[in-house]
């Protein structure tokens, strides 16, 4: 394993400490229990958004703490759900009169720990479960679809709505709505390496790809021989559209997300390919985001997320945001 490490057990603490020092104008970090929160508490009453999950997906979620998005993020160990005391402490720090909205990716560990954390606080609270990944079936026989790169779209838009002083119920409903009109799917060329493990999570041949991969290097739909960007994008987009069922002339946001080990040059190439495929189908890409936002450590690969836009979602996507990883109109 070649990674920038001093002591494997200290990776998270050292990284969080560096994150704090790099963005002192935007965030602060509390240690033990670990959580990232805004450097400046919002002036007026607002719903407080708290997300979190295993580390290794940076900038998700800590990079999205700040004006227009999250109030706090609770980072767990690499790929492990954070612990309930982190959510409790974060809620106590950031609550601002209108309740707490937890944004949780649909994984058993995250759900259980956020539930236990919610049990420990006295404020009104709601939870949005994000499950945008169409690679795994949502049936009674599974835990359900996974939450992946679409999570940041939920965090951006609901974060913006919360900034307007909207109620907890309103924010929760809007978040569920954005989740319902967002679908994602990814493909991986290589495994990722969890630092504590020191070796790749899964074996994959030089000519193979994992189609429908999760953001922890967990297997997806099938193992296939690698294809051209056109072919695999076509497969991904078709899977997403099967789920979203957009209308002709539908306006969408398309987010091409890198998993950490794929150059931006290739991500833009994917955007080009995806945009053309959608154009042919009469779907208009009117908003876009390309980059490494929901990563899987050093995994090579990428995902597409598509959100069907309406006036409200577009407005809250476009609004001002000031976080470490996302900054516009400010």
């Amino acid at each position: 394993m070649k990674k920038f490490v001093n002591n494997v057990e200290e990776i998270l603490t050292e990284s969080l400490s560096g994150f704090q020092k790099a963005h002192p104008d935007i965030i602060k970090v509390n240690f033990t229990p670990d959580f990232i929160f805004r450097a400046k508490k919002p002036a007026g009453d607002k719903v407080s958004l708290i997300s979190g999950g295993g580390s290794g997906h940076e900038p998700l979620h800590g990079g999205f703490v700040g004006h227009g998005m999250l109030d706090a993020a609770c980072p767990g160990q690499v790929f492990s759900a954070p612990t309930p005391d982190q959510m409790e402490a974060a809620a106590n720090e950031v609550h601002n009169g209108k309740g707490i909205l937890f944004i949780v990716k649909n994984y058993s560990g995250d759900i259980m720990n956020f539930e236990m954390g919610a049990d420990m606080i006295d404020y009104d609270h709601e939870t949005i479960l994000v499950n945008d990944d169409v690679a795994v079936e949502d049936s009674t026989f599974t835990t359900g679809r996974r939450g992946v790169a679409g999570t940041m779209i939920v965090e951006k838009t609901v974060g913006s709505l919360a900034e307007t002083g909207a109620s907890l119920e309103e924010c929760k409903l809007f978040g569920d709505h954005v989740n319902n009109v967002t679908a994602s799917m990814g493909v991986a060329f290589t495994s990722c390496t969890v630092p504590a493990a020191g070796k790749p999570t899964f074996e994959i041949g030089a000519e193979e790809m994992e189609f429908g991969v999760g953001i922890h290097g967990e297997p997806g739909r099938k193992r296939e021989k690698i294809k051209t960007a056109n072919e695999l994008t076509n497969d991904i987009i078709n899977s997403i559209l099967e789920d979203l069922k957009p209308d002709k002339n539908e306006e969408v946001l398309m987010h091409v997300n890198g998993f950490g080990g794929t150059p931006l040059m290739e991500l833009y190439l994917l955007f080009e390919v995806g945009q053309k495929i959608l154009e042919k189908k009469g779907i208009n890409v009117v908003r876009s985001l390309v980059g490494n936002y929901t990563t899987s450590l050093d995994m090579a690969g990428a995902s597409f997320s598509i959100t069907k836009l309406d006036e409200k979602i577009t407005q809250h996507w476009d609004s001002a945001v000031h976080t470490a990883a996302l900054r516009w109109k400010i």
């Binding site: 295993g54 612990t83 560990g109 236990m116």
Partner: peptide, 15 residues
């Protein structure tokens, strides 16, 4: 266990 393990197993063993 609840505050140091994390993941599903932390929540479950703590419970």
């Amino acid at each position: 266990i609840m505050t140091t393990v994390g993941g599903s197993s932390g929540a479950l063993f703590a419970t």
